[in-house]
Design a protein around this nucleic acid. Structure first.
Length: 269
DNA sequence: CGCCAGGGGAGCT
DNA sequence: AGCTCCCCTGGC
């Protein structure tokens, strides 16, 4: 157990910000998080966060996962004071972090996300993990499942994942898994590319369009200039930024602001 | 039962 | 860039 005093960190907001699908509230102040093959429980009371792992794992994994070394006030303080909408959004979601999640897991998660709602996306991913992921035991002796590697999904019948509730998205996942399993595309290479290169490479994948590519760039590769535009963001931009969102002003961290807007619309809307 | 929406995308023009 | 159509599940 490690205790940390964290500013601009709110696990509840992170959990509900729609960027991660394997994070669950398990009691009033405690959340469970499964990432890669790791299981964590995090309890937050005010600014005090208690991590269930040891110091080494916190330093080597979760610190990067939660982006703990970044001061998000640096982003928030650059918001135009006259932009009352964005100021309000950032104020409400000030505890959000842009997570650095597993690339393959994000590719699959956002392939599934299209024409889908968050509750179902979570269930789809849970189903896939239970059926094809490695079975693990957490520190409490409970069973959880790691996210299956591409190799575990490649070669399946293209409709096999309909059993996991993916519907017509099944073939997107199976075919994409094949591309990585047979070496046609490389997760390692994509993770080393800059934003435009990575985006272009991701767009080649079957089932990946601009919105999904940007979500992957933002939530896995930590390219903060990615600005995913889904139906909700589109509506918000049309309403509050008739002349267009001032991307130039916020060059390099547009994605952080996108998350504040997304969360604001999710909570308020 | 029909209808439609839920964090788009492919395949056209 | 803009337009169809695609196509799965759950809620009403």
């Amino acid at each position: 157990m490690i205790e940390k005093n964290l500013k601009n960190f709110n696990i509840a907001q992170i959990c509900n910000s729609g960027q991660c699908f394997r994070m669950t509230q398990i009691s009033e102040n405690t959340y469970s998080i499964i990432a890669n093959d790791k299981y964590l429980e995090l309890t937050q009371v005010e600014n005090v966060c208690t991590f269930s792992c040891n110091e080494e794992e916190l330093e080597n994994f979760w610190k990067q996962y939660f982006d703990l070394d970044t001061d998000y006030m640096v982003y928030i303080n650059q918001i135009n004071p006259k932009d009352t909408y964005l100021i309000s959004a950032a104020e409400l979601g000030a505890g959000i972090r842009i997570l650095q999640q597993d690339l393959w897991e994000m590719i699959v998660s956002f392939l599934i996300s299209q024409q889908n709602n968050i509750v179902r996306i979570r269930r789809c991913i849970q189903n896939i993990c239970e059926k094809y992921g490695e079975r693990k035991v957490n520190f409490k002796g409970e069973i959880y499942y790691a996210f299956p590697k591409p190799e575990a999904l490649a070669g399946l019948d293209e409709d096999a994942l309909k059993e996991c509730n993916l519907g017509y998205r099944s073939k997107y996942v199976v075919r994409t898994a094949g591309c990585f399993a047979n070496g046609q595309t490389s997760l390692q290479q994509i993770s080393q590319m800059n934003y435009p290169e990575a985006r272009e490479e991701l767009l080649k994948l079957f089932g990946v369009g601009e919105k999904v590519a940007d979500c992957i760039c933002l939530f896995a590769l930590h390219h903060l200039q990615a600005f995913p535009i889904d139906t909700h963001i589109k509506q918000a931009l049309e309403k509050h930024y008739k002349k267009g969102f001032p991307k130039r002003r916020y060059r390099g961290f547009e994605g952080v602001l996108q998350q504040y807007i997304f969360y604001y619309e999710l909570v308020k809307g």
